[in-house]
């Protein structure tokens, strides 16, 4: 079990690397676009759509990872209450599991929408990249996010000791 948790942790570095690389490219792209436009009056025409794609890649590469590591922004007024009652962990596990399960519906619908974009032949304006690739990526990563949260929920409920050693 421990080794699986460690493997998952290691695996989660891959999407983070993708997000990091994309972010760097986005920075350089924006810089190059401004310089090209200001000095040579020759902006990178596809910059806008590339930026949009880059954003989707950054957000949805990092999302499963931060979800699996329970790094969502959490605010809980009631926390101290449950802390005293000693049910904090169970509640936390249940909520995380529920979030994961609830996310399955939008994830599946995103696949439908990707399919729809394909059937209508939607393309990006300048580079004519099929829109459904991007939508499909978002759908897939949403599904992975759902799985990561559900898994974390289950582990929190039944095997909390695994969370400490190798954060899933």
């Amino acid at each position: 079990m421990k080794s699986i948790a460690r493997l998952l942790h290691r695996l989660s570095e891959l999407p983070m690397l993708l997000a990091a690389a994309t972010l760097f490219v986005l920075m350089v792209l924006t810089f190059a676009d401004v310089i090209m436009r200001s000095t040579f009056s020759a902006p990178i025409e596809a910059a806008t759509e590339l930026t949009r794609i880059a954003m989707a890649v950054i957000v949805f590469s990092a999302l499963p990872v931060i979800s699996g590591r329970a790094e969502h922004i959490v605010v809980d007024l009631l926390d101290p209450l449950f802390h005293r009652a000693g049910v904090e962990r169970v509640l936390d596990g249940l909520i995380t599991l529920a979030c994961g399960v609830l996310l399955v519906w939008p994830a599946l619908r995103c696949f439908d929408l990707a399919d729809r974009a394909r059937s209508y032949g939607d393309l990006t304006e300048y580079l004519a990249i099929p829109v459904h690739y991007i939508t499909w990526f978002i759908a897939f990563m949403t599904l992975i996010t759902a799985a990561a949260m559900a898994l974390r929920g289950v582990v929190t409920l039944f095997k909390p000791d695994l969370l400490g050693g190798a954060r899933d």
């Binding site: 939008p106 619908r109 995103c110 929408l113 978002i138």
Partner: peptide, 26 residues
């Protein structure tokens, strides 16, 4: 409802205007 939610997931992440957020954080 589920369709609107899914569209928001897809469209928000590709909103050009929001690309300032990661860049300013960076």
């Amino acid at each position: 409802a589920i369709s609107l939610v899914s569209r928001l997931i897809i469209d928000t992440s590709q909103d050009y205007g929001l690309s300032v957020v990661p860049l300013f954080i960076l």
